[in-house]
Simulated assay, not measured.
Amino acid sequence: MRLIHPFHPRCGEAFEFLERLNSWRGDVVLVLDGQGRRCSFPLEWTDMAPVDVFVSAAGEDCPYRTGDLVELADLVAGLLSGGQHGVGEMTS
């Protein structure tokens, strides 16, 4: 198993796969590092995660997943419609 999260300090490092587990936050993989220590990573940080079709089609040009962009758009829409004041305005 290889760690592929671009911002993790161990990105690109290979680990010995032990098992895939389901935790309260989602799927994780349990691995052994080069010194034989057990550690775990979120499944989506590894090369074992299912390929996102949008990111695959975009190639290296787009680091964002479709679901993340939709979630961001919903968050921004909620912030814009949620208050009496516009974004950046001070309340009295």
Rank of each mutant, 00 (worst) to 15 (best):
M1R: 03
M1C: 01
R2K: 15
I4E: 07
H5C: 09
H5K: 09
H5V: 03
P9L: 00
P9R: 01
R10S: 14
G12K: 02
G12N: 08
E13I: 11
A14C: 12
A14S: 14
A14M: 08
F17T: 04
F17D: 14
F17A: 08
N22R: 15
N22G: 08
S23E: 12
S23Q: 15
W24I: 12
R25M: 12
R25D: 14
D27N: 14
V28R: 15
V29Q: 10
L30N: 11
L30H: 04
L30G: 09
L30E: 12
L32C: 14
L32M: 12
L32T: 14
G34Y: 09
Q35K: 15
Q35Y: 03
R37W: 14
R38K: 15
R38P: 13
C39P: 07
C39N: 13
S40F: 08
F41S: 06
F41K: 10
P42K: 11
L43H: 01
E44N: 10
W45T: 05
D47Y: 11
M48V: 03
A49F: 12
P50W: 04
P50S: 06
V51K: 10
D52H: 13
V53Q: 14
V55K: 02
S56A: 13
A57V: 11
A57E: 11
A58G: 04
G59K: 05
G59Q: 07
E60L: 08
E60N: 10
D61C: 08
P63M: 08
Y64L: 14
Y64M: 09
R65Y: 15
R65H: 07
T66L: 10
G67R: 06
G67L: 09
G67S: 06
E71F: 05
E71H: 03
A73H: 04
A73Y: 06
A73C: 01
L75M: 09
V76I: 15
V76N: 03
A77K: 07
G78S: 04
G78P: 01
G78H: 00
L79W: 07
L79I: 07
S81C: 05
S81Q: 12
Q84H: 08
H85K: 07
H85V: 05
E89I: 03
T91N: 10
